[in-house]
């Protein structure tokens, strides 16, 4: 301890400079949104390179489990193709999207606002506000992009809501993470005129430009009907476990600019 204090005292000028520089950088990021964003991007770039290095080391040992997940995903796709007319209808609603495959190189699950980092960036065509899906449903929305990496605002973020609907009748609301169990979500804004059963399937509602309609999200596990407010409070358990994700698809919506321009037109 004494040696550390002696070393600090020997380099007092440098220590003072670094401390004041830290204060100045905090001051800078608090005063300017541009600098805050740029600092976030810089941090993301550095963290991306670091995690890509460690990922390439550990990837080899996870190959067996990855293969298993891919096999299951393939099987589900083949089954969907074999189902016939109904699944064709579901397939056509995916039209207008292009999927960009990516690997998650950094994941966090322990905070109320979790962020993932994917190894594809603007060079691969990734842009801000693109939806991200995995083998078993929605993963999140891209919120920052550098040439080689993308930061994803994860579904495990208490401030993110996803447009979700009942598969059986299309009644839609907003799906939120409850902030504790990574698979426990809450579906809000469903009017009590819509019947709810435990076990009902919840899918993406298709009312946003992030995700196509009909991507399976989870199942109803419990619900309460608030007669005063006129809405159900529905507990939903996700089909997939977001904490074991590695491979994702970033979705480019070809019609987004057209849809956005329509939204901007005021009567």
């Amino acid at each position: 301890m004494q040696q550390i204090i002696n070393a600090l005292l020997r380099n007092l000028s440098l220590v003072l400079y670094l401390v004041l520089l830290g204060f100045a950088l905090i001051f800078l990021s608090n005063r300017s949104f541009y600098h805050q964003t740029q600092m976030y991007r810089l941090g993301m770039g550095i963290s991306g390179w670091l995690h890509q290095g460690s990922k390439s080391l550990t990837q080899y040992f996870e190959l067996e489990r990855e293969n298993e997940i891919l096999q299951r995903e393939n099987l589900a796709l083949v089954n969907q193709l074999l189902k016939g007319k109904d699944s064709f209808a579901a397939q056509t609603s995916y039209l207008g999207y292009r999927a960009i495959p990516a690997d998650l190189i950094q994941k966090s699950y322990h905070s109320p606002k979790n962020v993932f980092i994917a190894d594809q960036g603007s060079r691969a065509g990734v842009q801000k506000e693109m939806g991200v899906i995995g083998a078993k449903g929605v993963v999140g929305i891209v919120n920052q992009v550098t040439p080689n990496f993308a930061s994803i605002m994860s579904l495990l973020d208490i401030d993110l809501s996803i447009n979700a609907a009942f598969q059986k009748n299309g009644a839609f609301g907003s799906l939120y993470w409850t902030g504790k169990d990574p698979q426990a979500f809450e579906l809000k804004d469903i009017s009590i005129i819509n019947p709810v059963r435990i076990g009902d399937t919840i899918v993406t509602g298709g009312m946003s430009t992030y995700f196509p309609k009909g991507i399976p999200l989870g199942q109803v596990t419990a619900y309460e009907s608030d007669r005063v407010q006129g809405y159900h409070q529905i507990q939903v358990r996700l089909f997939g476990n977001p904490t074991v994700l590695n491979q994702v698809y970033i979705l480019e919506n070809f019609g987004r600019s057209e849809l956005d321009s329509l939204k901007n037109i005021r009567p």
């Binding site: 000028s13 440098l14 003072l16 400079y17 004041l20 520089l21 100045a24 950088l25 001051f27 800078l28 005063r31 300017s32 541009y34 600098h35």
Partner: peptide, 24 residues
């Protein structure tokens, strides 16, 4: 000095970092 100038000119903080650095 840099901080005073940034506060008086509503600049984001570049004067503080630049002046602090040349002083160091």
């Amino acid at each position: 000095l840099g901080l005073s100038l940034d506060l008086l000119t509503q600049s984001p903080g570049a004067h503080t970092i630049a002046t602090l650095s040349i002083a160091a």
